[in-house]
Design a protein around this nucleic acid. Structure first.
Length: 211
DNA sequence: TATACGATCACCT
DNA sequence: GGTGATCGTATAC
């Protein structure tokens, strides 16, 4: 779907709805003239002031300011003194909601990803929120960019996936609102940040490589 | 100015 | 399975 685009207003939908439709979508960057891209296989929804696990739950701060902008802006944050993570802001201005991109299947520029990540396995290039940012060259320079207008970072939609292709679970690495099943992932993907819990026979083909 | 801690990762056993 | 690294951010004093 290299030539399709999300419609203006798409990111103003509910955060869970945007999260579902981002599974399978393509995230690409052009950083220092080098293009890299991946298919999104795992995301988490963070639902603003009504979600105690969200960075925006305690209100607007310089760090979280962009979360309160209109849907479609890029929220990048730095954690644990080492890693960046990237989010897509959702809903209209003022809600503070966003979708964290947690894992990709590498699609384009794997040699560049390897240069940035070191000589690791194909899965390990992008199977975590910090790893994928390193692989795609995402850092604070992209804070406040817009996914439909930026020259540096873009999102393109997938063909619609059936509901059965998408799994749900608790979110990872949080201490609040741990009961919410707001992590969504592509069933059967080899590129998830952690393996699927369900050990029964794999029945989905939607996670197979597209390259 | 000081302190606590985090939407993680890599490496260890 | 467990743990240390490392520093920006928020908060308290």
């Amino acid at each position: 779907m290299a030539n399709s685009r999300f419609k203006s207003g798409f990111f103003d939908q509910s955060t869970l709805s945007v999260a579902r439709q981002l599974i399978g979508a393509t995230l690409s960057t052009c950083i220092d003239g080098e293009t890299t891209a991946g298919r999104i296989v795992e995301v988490e929804a963070y639902c603003g002031t009504r979600d105690p696990a969200a960075h925006s739950a305690k209100g607007r701060t310089p760090r979280t300011e962009v979360m309160f902008w209109a849907g479609g802006f890029c929220y990048v944050y730095f954690v644990y003194g080492a890693h960046y993570c990237v989010n897509v802001v959702t809903r209209p201005e003022g809600f503070g909601e966003a979708v964290l991109i947690r894992a990709l299947e590498p699609v384009e520029g794997l040699d560049i990803m390897r240069h940035r990540r070191g000589n690791v396995t194909r899965q390990s290039l992008t199977n975590g929120p910090g790893k994928l940012c390193q692989a795609l060259g995402i850092d604070r320079r992209l804070y406040g960019e817009h996914f439909l207008r930026s020259e540096l970072i873009r999102l393109e939609p997938a063909t619609k996936l059936p509901a059965v292709a998408i799994g749900r679970s608790k979110r990872i690495g949080i201490t609040a609102a741990t009961e919410k099943l707001w992590r969504l992932y592509l069933k059967g993907s080899e590129y998830l940040s952690r393996p699927e819990q369900d050990s029964r026979k794999k029945t989905s083909n939607y996670g197979r490589n597209i390259t």
